[in-house]
């Protein structure tokens, strides 16, 4: 007899989306189960479901309000959550990336402030970031790798006012997460470094070399090291 999982929480999110989350007390379980739920939903695509956006512990499911409704999508989500596991879709082994990062003042405008809030020196904050073992939980906007596992004394707050233009390659942190900005753009996260690598290349058949589940560490480099890399596409190679 397969174990039926806890039912999911489904709440309306505007007139054409629902937010699905897993009501488990443990964050790791919530994060793990929502990834499994996402795979189920995308494999079966309930009628009228048009797209999904992954959050760390939730899944935004958008639907076409002309062909379905909140009630129908909620019903479909609950049915999917209760299906026994078919055992298909075994995860591929995690790849490991060591991503070189510049931490100087120009590349890391929020570093001193973040360190101050955490009661650390800037060097101590860098050391904490570099010893963190990150795991890619999802691809966020513009295929940005969203990572879990920031090892700081407590979660990092977002900026009071979002920045409107952060350069490509910026390493940004908030909460216990890190993300890399693939293209210049806005963010409410704290900018604490920058990698000289190209993270996303839309002219490649596979615009990114990583997948959810892959592991990432950041390593400190200087300007000379950054100049040698000069925008090279990020690959798994060169991992120590």
């Amino acid at each position: 007899m397969p174990i039926l999982r806890e039912t999911v929480t489904v709440e309306p999110y505007g007139d054409s989306a629902v937010m699905v989350s897993i009501p488990a007390p443990d964050a790791a379980a919530r994060r793990c189960e929502i990834v499994a739920f996402r795979s189920r939903l995308l494999a079966r695509r309930p009628h009228g479901v048009v797209d999904v956006v992954s959050g760390l512990e939730s899944l935004l499911v958008s639907f076409d309000p002309l062909v379905t409704s909140f009630e129908h999508v909620e019903y479909a989500a609950r049915l999917l959550a209760e299906l026994p596991d078919s055992g298909t879709g075994a995860a591929q082994p995690a790849r490991r990336f060591a991503i070189p990062v510049l931490f100087d003042a120009e590349a890391a405008p929020d570093l001193d402030e973040v360190a101050g809030e955490l009661g650390l020196t800037a060097d101590e904050a860098i050391e904490r970031i570099c010893r963190s073992q990150f795991s890619i939980s999802l691809l966020a906007a513009a295929m940005a790798p969203m990572m879990d596992g920031l090892d700081t004394p407590r979660p990092v707050r977002r900026r009071a006012e979002p920045r409107t233009d952060v350069p490509a390659g910026s390493i940004m942190i908030a909460g216990v997460n890190a993300i890399i900005q693939p293209f210049p753009g806005p963010t409410g996260w704290r900018v604490v470094g920058r990698t000289p690598h190209t993270i996303v290349d839309i002219h490649r058949e596979r615009p990114v070399s990583f997948d959810p589940g892959d592991l990432v560490r950041f390593t400190r480099i200087d300007r000379a090291g950054a100049a040698r890399l000069d925008g090279a596409f990020l690959t798994e190679e060169g991992v120590s």
Binding site: G14, G55, E57, A174
Partner: peptide
Amino acid sequence: GDDEIVSHGVPIGALEVPHA
């Protein structure tokens, strides 16, 4: 309170209140 909200998907048209 200033609890951090765990990052989640946001639909087009969402009305957000940032810290500012």
